[in-house]
Design a protein around this nucleic acid. Structure first.
Lengths: 145, 145
DNA sequence: ATGTTTGCAAATAGTTTGCATCCAG
DNA sequence: CTGGATGCAAACTATTTGCAAACAT
């Protein structure tokens, strides 16, 4: 990430905090700063270790709560392990998922157009792709009210 | 699921077990049976409660290990919480993920064609879609060897 | 000032492992 | 028979909560 882009990201971080009524604390600033410097989708534990180099007294759960807060105000997203526990699907036919961000229910759907999407050439060259799935996120019909 | 389709699924379950050198035990049979009867992507805890009605003495971790085994031999898949812990992404621009099923690393990639995919009409009518992402799974370049 | 955030600690939830016994092949 | 599978227990990891002190506004 370029320097200018980085500063722009820090600016929009501060705006997002204010918009959400959250204080711009040094902890939050440093955690966000480390998060955007990380390209590897870090776990909280991972992030904690990096942040601690800059802020040795920070506690693990400050990092924990802060990153969860970031995902609530829409400046970061959880890419794995949304809920507490693993969930399973016996349906091995090609299909796709809609996940409700409120009630966490996962709804299967079928859509040929999605099944037929091509793998981008650069990905296909570098990796062996075994599975392809579209994941939609949003609010389900029961949670809209 | 229709009755005939259900029996076909149980047949292919038994074949898959044999092919993988696994024994077709009553526990595995009942767990798989309950799993395909569940359309809600159950957690293990959830499945355990259902299975226990049929097999009151079964232990929680038999269910646990069994379902993990199912996902290893390819007759079920984990749809949430692949690893032990949550992982975060500060990148809020539209992008997609490749996840290595071996080392669990998650690689971002960009692809306009994926960004521009339409939401299926029936989904758009029922739900409020906030986010759309393609998730590819497979083996990454470092893990192929 | 004051209400939010932090750090600490403890509780809870989810996952993994070791091992003796049991049973499907 | 026999090696893999099961049940039990305990360890371990991840997540959540309560609360007093500290801090940003």
């Amino acid at each position: 990430m370029e320097k200018i882009e980085h500063e722009r990201a820090m600016d929009s971080f501060r705006s997002a905090c204010k918009a959400a009524g959250l204080k711009v604390t040094p902890q939050r600033t440093i955690i966000y700063n480390e998060l955007i410097a990380s390209t590897d989708h870090p776990s909280i534990d991972n992030l904690y270790r990096r942040v601690r180099k800059l802020l040795p007294n920070i506690s693990f759960d400050t990092v924990y709560r802060t990153v969860l807060t970031f995902s609530q105000i829409g400046i970061a997203s959880i890419v794995d392990g949304y809920g507490g526990s693993k969930r399973f699907d016996p349906n091995m036919k090609p299909h796709h998922h809609f996940r409700c961000i409120n009630c966490q229910s996962i709804i299967d759907f079928y859509h040929d157009e999605y099944d037929n999407m091509e793998i981008p050439p650069d990905i296909r060259e570098r990796f062996t792709v075994l599975n392809k799935r579209v994941q939609l996120e949003g609010i389900c019909e029961r949670c809209v009210s």
